[in-house]
């Protein structure tokens, strides 16, 4: 937690999250030299990677040599804190982290895991990318997406509303609303 508190105004953090499993292809992609340089050119100073159960270990860097500072961890109960402190989020395609990030109105790049068997996850990311709420990439196109992206072009996501379903269920069961 102290790391989060220490973040000063001058820092601009990119937070990468792979979720509860592993997504080595994503960690490897953000750890690549070209992606690190592209992020640094865009003005980001820090890269924090939540790598989950993955086996690929990114190379740490303290950023003293005028490059991106890189740090990583496996899991944390306070992902929300990392999301809040980030200026850009690069996430796996799980709906949980997508909507958590969108609600915080953080620029978001969703990277679809093509190794998953039942790959329905790309549906959501592609649909939301079409509506300009986020950028959608694959591990091998992450560099191009970062280079070409303009976070200001994103449209803020209007959070949905569950009350119509609750009302429908109440009516269906014969509960009368006051």
């Amino acid at each position: 937690m102290s790391e989060i508190d220490d973040i000063s105004e001058s820092k601009s953090v990119v937070f990468v999250t792979v979720g509860t499993t592993s997504f080595d292809a994503l960690v490897r992609a953000v750890d690549s030299q070209e992606v690190r340089e592209a992020l640094f050119r865009k003005g980001y100073t820090d890269l924090v990677i939540q790598m989950g159960r993955g086996s690929y270990i990114p190379s740490k860097s303290n950023g003293e040599d005028g490059s991106l500072s890189v740090d990583y961890f496996t899991f944390s109960p306070s992902i929300a804190e990392y999301l809040k402190s980030a200026s850009l989020v690069i996430s796996h395609a799980g709906s949980g982290s997508i909507f958590e990030t969108l609600r915080l109105r953080k620029p978001l790049i969703v990277v679809v895991n093509e190794d998953l068997m039942d790959n329905h996850q790309s549906e959501l990311a592609e649909e939301l990318a079409e509506r300009n709420h986020l950028f959608c990439a694959r591990p091998q196109t992450l560099y191009e997406t970062i280079s070409a992206m303009d976070p200001n072009s994103l449209v803020p996501y209007q959070p949905g509303d569950a009350t119509p379903v609750a009302k429908f269920i109440n009516r269906f069961l014969g509960f009368v609303d006051e």
């Binding site: 709906s95 549906e123 959501l124 592609e126 949905g160």
Partner: peptide
């Protein structure tokens, strides 16, 4: 149905 299901 989950919001993650867009087409199927």
């Amino acid at each position: 149905e989950s919001i993650a299901r867009v087409k199927r």
